[in-house]
Design a protein around this nucleic acid. Structure first.
Lengths: 373, 373
DNA sequence: GGTTTGAGATTTAACGATAAACCTCCGTTA
DNA sequence: TAACGGAGGTTTATCGTTAAATCTCAAACC
């Protein structure tokens, strides 16, 4: 007693099945269903029959077969190094959202490769990539030379925030120096003069650029730079917290900074925590500013002033640049790509930055036995 | 003058190329390079020659061809509905990290499909899935009946936090009622009696379960339930903020809650903001607790007490359950899957919850012309 | 010395789609 | 009347891999 309602076929229908059902060859079905130059090649009546058959059989093209024949996977790879705890982070999420948006718009699939670190794990990358993606987006703020050498041969690459140049690839970055300079200049304009910079790890291109921006803003305002007011920390929240605690302990009794500019949002949040732990209020006692404008900047109380990088837009753009390399427009011979595209940053002013306190405060002495280490 | 250093071949090497270079057939190369039952089938000397040739030619298997022949893509799809602004959120990030970890471990690729909404966009899903993934993980807290009907035919499905049952699929969820009950019981144990619940949208299974947990904890402590102390809000930060502002305005002058339990972390952060805006401190005046333990819970100051769902583990498990359905173990006939797997939740106590204030406070009257709407 | 045996390969046939060359009419045109 | 041309298809070859069947030849056995 065959059920008429849901006759679930054991195997998915192929083009040949559709053709047979419509009384034509598989090839005719292929032409119709890809709808490219349909009108001229196939009679309207046949066309209708084929479409009806395809619908009836619930035909879906087999991606693997198509990829094999076309020699294109219609898939973009995204490679990133995972953070502490093996997790991708806020920064990745923002970029990835942009990538997905553009990829979906251009009918490309997206597959994600995670690596534990560039040094060793990068060797796996060619094996993961070759033959299954058309192009690769490399999220590369902490790229290593070994990784660059190990990159896959036959796959075009676009990088985001690359830490070092990759021959033949396009890099997308934001104007971090200008962003940092802008934020510090804003602090100065609001009356701050004693501005501490809690920077990211020395050696990382992004951290260095933000330091340059900080120094440029100081110089422009003729505020002397003190090496002691430039603190190196990691990019994790706890590292920012710890770095500020250490600094405060070292400089107990000396003048308190009026503002703290951090190399990233997570670090800034760590600083806010450290300040709260020693009884200092933000922004009444100290203003705090971050960098990146990740989601986290809006989840603090008070909300964190920060420098926005257009991460979503950068992700989308990465997809578009990659696709343009994949299928060069018929018009242009070989589109000469600029190998760096710089995005502007933008000041995001929120409640964590206020005017400096009326009187100069001093760094509180740590309470014996208290928290804070 | 042929460069010997980097002779970049126009096309990637195929198995036939490797075979030719090693003086054997493509098939022999296939057997060796897949290393399955290698030892018995191929002579050691031949084996070595083939491996050498493969390395020399930088042979990489073509994923499309392999998928076509094997009828397996080695790829798992992840479908999620994007949030406001078309962005995937913290919850997704945590789950996705778990999925990626397990997928990488099992040498599966992962591709992400985003949908604007289940109602209409879900119809695209079969077209996206069929023929390019082996199985689908559906992140489905806001699934709709239309979406369930539109699901792809030939693709096994595992859901996370499904809002409604899907025939033939396995659902992974956490014990939200117990988690909510546990948190509210903890608040009661610390001395709170006036506990406001800012819940998620009515009708969402998760929100309802958390409400049930809240009521169960109250009942167990013989604290009467007041409908006015159950506020419905969205799951966005601003919706939580707005909902609390509205409530505070409505109940100005009446007794202030000692604690607020929110249906999710973002809402809790919104509430913390609203409290700060009317001059109330957390936790001195009001304790606040959230639900989910997303990354955001650790970026607030003070850090947010919350109910942890093991999102990472759930993501990993989803992959494993899916893979088990794909290739049933030779031993068992047809592994009878339980169609719901429940994960335990866990209380995460952080600084946003403290003891209730010594004296009963009242809801402050809104300052005329102040912020707060 | 003829038949087994089996390790060590090779050959053949899919897998499902695309690209390009190739028919087959029928209505025009020279 | 023969050649042409184009609309509407079909056939054939190919993409790179795997599964299954087949071949080959030397050693072992009766």
């Amino acid at each position: 007693m065959p059920s008429l309602k849901k006759r679930k076929p054991a195997r998915a229908a192929t083009l040949a099945d559709v053709g047979r059902a419509a009384g034509v060859s598989a090839m005719a079905a292929s032409v119709v269903l890809n709808a490219a130059q349909s009108s001229s090649r196939v009679a309207a009546a046949t066309r209708t029959r084929i479409l009806a058959a395809a619908r009836r059989l619930r035909y879906r093209p087999n991606a693997a077969a198509r990829a094999l024949a076309e020699r294109r996977m219609h898939t973009i790879g995204v490679a990133a190094v995972v953070d502490v705890g093996g997790e991708l982070n806020h920064y990745f999420l923002s970029v990835f959202n942009g990538i997905l948006e553009a990829a979906t718009r251009h009918r490309q699939n997206t597959t994600v490769f995670t690596l534990a670190d560039w040094e060793q794990d990068a060797a796996r990358l060619p094996g993961l990539c070759d033959g299954r993606i058309d192009g690769l987006i490399l999220i590369a703020p902490v790229l290593s030379p070994a990784a660059v050498r190990a990159l896959p041969d036959h796959t075009p690459v676009v990088t985001l925030h690359a830490n070092m140049p990759i021959p033949g690839s396009v890099n997308l970055e934001s104007d971090e120096e200008a962003g940092a300079c802008g934020m510090v200049s804003h602090l100065i304009a609001r009356g701050h003069r004693r501005i501490l910079h809690v920077a990211g790890p020395r050696g990382l291109l992004g951290a260095e650029r933000r330091i340059r921006g900080y120094r440029r803003a100081l110089a422009a305002a003729r505020i002397p730079f003190h090496a002691a007011w430039l603190v190196e920390a990691g990019y994790e929240m706890d590292e920012g917290r710890q770095a500020l605690h250490d600094w405060l302990r070292r400089f107990a009794g000396r003048p308190l900074p009026q503002a703290i500019f951090c190399g990233n949002d997570a670090g800034a949040i760590g600083c806010m925590e450290a300040l709260a732990e020693v009884g200092l209020r933000v922004p009444e006692d100290v203003s705090v500013a971050g960098f990146d404008d990740t989601l986290a900047a809006r989840t603090t109380v008070p909300q964190l002033a920060t420098v926005r990088q257009p991460l979503h837009a950068m992700g989308s753009r990465a997809v578009e640049v990659l696709l343009a390399r994949l299928r060069p427009r018929p018009g242009t011979r070989r589109p000469e790509f600029q190998n760096t595209i710089v995005f502007p940053t933008e000041l995001v002013l929120r409640a964590s930055v206020g005017p400096p306190p009326a009187s100069t405060k001093t760094v509180p002495r740590p309470a014996p036995g208290g928290r804070g280490s």
